[in-house]
């Protein structure tokens, strides 16, 4: 008990005597109150650990630390020769209970719902981030790779420069027959959309069969690349790789290259139009002119407008500028993209 005796004076001097000697001396109740407060915010620097250490006081642990001794001294001092002793101890116990509650909060239904709502909010933002950004990057790069792989399958040895056919020999563009639904039959290169832009064109415009997976879809029944009439395609402007994300950034005169097994079709961008979702006139061989007989070789690209909405359609037009067979090699502008194939 010599340990307990020694700190008694210590506990007396900083709390009761050192800080407010006159007040404490005159008012014993205030003194007791002060100790109660003191157990929470005491004057000496050891206090923050008090509530933790108090557990040791009641259980009478033999190894009494400096802090515990101090508190013991405090309460003993406050209750010395007075009936307040029990009240003071109760005060101390309540203090401990509060601090215990602070460490281990009881299960709260409000808290649970709060965390659930916060979690739901975070999940919504995660989904949006995935849908509008991350998935576009993943799917877009995968579509670019698919385009490169498809073009690789068509690889034929390109003759040396001298042996290649001259432009005069190219003749009219070769027109393939439309393939089976969802089959990828062409690769589209649009340098304006990025040097590595190489997306496949598949037959059909089914959402789950073509547009969500393969990228660009060819309207069945419209003309094929290089054919007189209208080669009409559709693709997502946002999400699922968004092949036509930057459709509105095309500038008049921009080149759009379509590669098939037969060769390269170079289209030149002509302009934009915005139509209602029912505006099927843009798919006509002569756009918006039903029944007219076509003389031009056009390409029509449709996507949604505004972005993330299905309210309207954005329609881009291009016309065929030139054609060259596979044996003539790729046009110079996309040579790097085409020959960058893994």
């Amino acid at each position: 008990m010599s340990d307990g005796d020694r700190p008694m004076s210590d506990g007396d001097s900083p709390v009761a005597g050192g800080d407010q000697p006159a007040t404490n001396g005159d008012q014993p109740f205030a003194d007791a109150d002060n100790h109660a407060i003191g157990s929470d915010q005491p004057a000496n620097s050891d206090q923050p650990t008090v509530s933790m250490d108090q557990a040791g006081i009641d259980s009478d642990q033999p190894t009494v630390s400096m802090d515990q001794a101090l508190i013991e001294g405090d309460s003993a001092d406050a209750g010395a020769g007075s009936p307040d002793l029990d009240g003071d101890k109760a005060e101390t116990r309540r203090g401990r209970r509060i601090s215990t509650a602070r460490r281990k909060p009881k299960f709260s239904i409000v808290g649970l719902f709060g965390e659930l709502f916060i979690t739901a909010g975070v999940l919504v933002f995660l989904f949006l981030g995935w849908q509008l950004w991350l998935n576009d990057i993943i799917v877009g790069s995968s579509q670019n790779k698919t385009g490169v792989t498809l073009a690789q399958n068509w690889d034929a040895p390109v003759p040396a420069q001298a042996d290649r056919p001259k432009p005069a020999d190219y003749g009219d563009p070769v027109v393939a027959t439309a393939p089976a639904n969802a089959q990828q039959f062409a690769v589209m290169y649009i340098p304006r959309f990025g040097a590595d832009y190489s997306r496949t064109v598949s037959e059909g415009v089914g959402t789950s069969t073509v547009l969500d997976k393969n990228g660009i879809g060819h309207y069945p029944g419209t003309q094929m690349p290089g054919e007189v009439g209208n080669f009409a395609v559709a693709a997502h402007r946002t999400t699922h790789g968004a092949p036509f994300n930057q459709l509105a950034t095309l500038q008049v005169g921009d080149k759009i290259y379509v590669q098939t097994q037969d060769g390269y079709y170079t289209y030149v961008y002509r302009g934009l139009e915005y139509v209602r979702p029912t505006g099927v006139g843009v798919l006509d061989p002569v756009p918006e002119t039903t029944g007219a007989s076509p003389t031009d070789r056009l390409m029509t690209m449709t996507s949604c407008n505004p972005k993330l909405s299905a309210a309207e359609r954005i329609v881009g037009y291009a016309s065929l500028d030139s054609w060259q067979p596979t044996a003539a090699g790729a046009p110079a502008a996309i040579l790097a993209t085409v020959s960058a194939k893994g």
Partner: peptide, 10 residues
């Protein structure tokens, strides 16, 4: 989530 109809049709 289908907010992205990109085709024209009747």
């Amino acid at each position: 989530v289908n907010v992205n109809d990109v085709t024209v049709g009747q």
